[in-house]
């Protein structure tokens, strides 16, 4: 019961990543791609947490912690580069 619901959640997260990838390929400008990259990063945090639940190891959550801390840095650098210069 619980495993079935969590597998359905994982499938929905994978579909979200797939739609963001679609916008990444299709998007007309650099900023669209940056936003798609951001959505893919935030969705990956949830996928990592699900993998950590199915594996039963608490140590996998550290990777999600590093994602949450450092993922915004590259997006900030992209935005500052587009705006006027680093």
């Amino acid at each position: 019961m619980v495993n079935t619901i969590l597998i359905m959640a994982g499938v929905l997260m994978a579909l979200g990543i797939l739609l963001a990838l679609f916008r990444f390929i299709l998007g007309p400008d650099v900023t669209d791609r940056a936003i798609a990259f951001d959505v893919m990063t935030v969705s990956s945090i949830s996928v990592i947490a699900l993998i950590a639940y199915f594996a039963g190891r608490v140590i996998y959550l550290d990777v999600a912690l590093v994602y949450g801390l450092l993922s915004f840095l590259s997006v900030v650098v992209i935005g500052r580069y587009i705006e006027r210069g680093l």
């Binding site: 594996a55 039963g56 190891r57 608490v58 140590i59 996998y60």
Partner: peptide, 9 residues
């Protein structure tokens, strides 16, 4: 196989 870090699991 699982991760090579020894803890409670």
């Amino acid at each position: 196989s699982t991760a090579p870090i020894i803890d409670k699991a």
